[in-house]
């Protein structure tokens, strides 16, 4: 079996998820023995447009970015969205409540801006522009999940992503529930796969892996009422990572 050719691309984001790949440390050497990394701008100068698997990080902001993404999709057999910005839109979508013109005016004032560079639309998740085959969720991604997806693809197996909430992993970690401590946590409605890392460090889940049950679902409303929180607080908290169109799917 020939090695799959992998290209890693980034759009609007913090590049933190790509950084996790560098955090593989010695295992990077294993990675490059099982796949050919043909493009990874953040760490290598070499580049090729001939690849089987494209891994996309970041949200899509501008027509020029959409065009570049469509080109990548047309060349890739498998397209993987990497990290919250790519999978659900992530924090980038927080600004979508205002129009691009409003934001630009407020940000750069009356300065004359380059029309192409600043031709900005609403921030989008990758699958709002092109079809996505697999998702690696999180802000940032979980390195073990990244490895599981890469090895799965290299072995010809469909990667499995949890469809259950963070509570499952949190309970397995034997954490004291943050609700018991009077803290407000999105774990019960957020997709697991992060090993409940935030609650394990006594910090509430913020929903970066995507919301499984919308805040307006009856059982979520019940939960909020039971713990003396307001629905508005919950909904507001959800918007940090889940303001995008793709977030509550």
């Amino acid at each position: 079996m020939s090695k799959p050719r992998v290209a890693i691309f980034d759009f609007a984001d913090c590049e933190g998820c790509e950084l996790q790949i560098a955090n593989l440390e010695e295992e990077i050497l294993d990675l490059i023995t099982i796949v050919d990394v043909v493009s990874f701008r953040e760490v290598m100068k070499e580049h090729s447009d001939d690849y089987d698997i494209a891994i996309i990080e970041g949200s899509i902001m501008r027509p020029m970015d959409e065009e570049r993404l469509r080109f990548i999709r047309s060349r890739a057999k498998i397209l993987v969205a990497l990290g919250a910005c790519a999978t659900i839109g992530g924090v980038n979508t927080l600004r979508n409540q205002w129009t691009p013109d409003e934001v630009k005016k407020e940000v750069y004032g009356s300065a004359k801006l380059n029309e192409t560079l600043f031709d900005v639309g609403p921030a989008k998740a990758i699958n709002e522009v092109v079809p996505v085959d697999y998702y690696i969720h999180g802000c940032p991604i979980d390195l073990d999940e990244f490895k599981a997806v890469v090895t799965s693809l290299a072995l010809g197996k469909k990667p499995e992503i949890p469809t259950y909430p963070v509570c499952v992993e949190c309970t397995k970690n034997e954490n004291v529930c943050l609700y018991e401590l009077g803290k407000f946590c999105l774990g019960p409605i957020t997709r697991a796969g992060c090993k409940a890392i935030c609650p394990t460090h006594n910090s509430p889940c913020d929903g970066c892996r995507g919301i499984l049950k919308k805040p307006e679902t009856e059982c979520v409303k019940d939960l909020v009422a039971r713990y003396d929180l307001t629905y508005e607080e919950l909904a507001q908290r959800c918007t940090v990572f889940n303001s995008g169109k793709e977030a509550c799917k």
């Binding site: 295992e27 023995t33 090895t151 499995e160 259950y164 309970t171 059982c219 939960l223």
Partner: peptide, 29 residues
Amino acid sequence: DHCMECSSCTMVCPTCYCYDVRDTTDLNL
């Protein structure tokens, strides 16, 4: 109707014993 579908009830139960099995391969394949 109120269930969050988190299965915490079964995780913490001393008499629940169901399990899942999966293969995980290192990055060196």
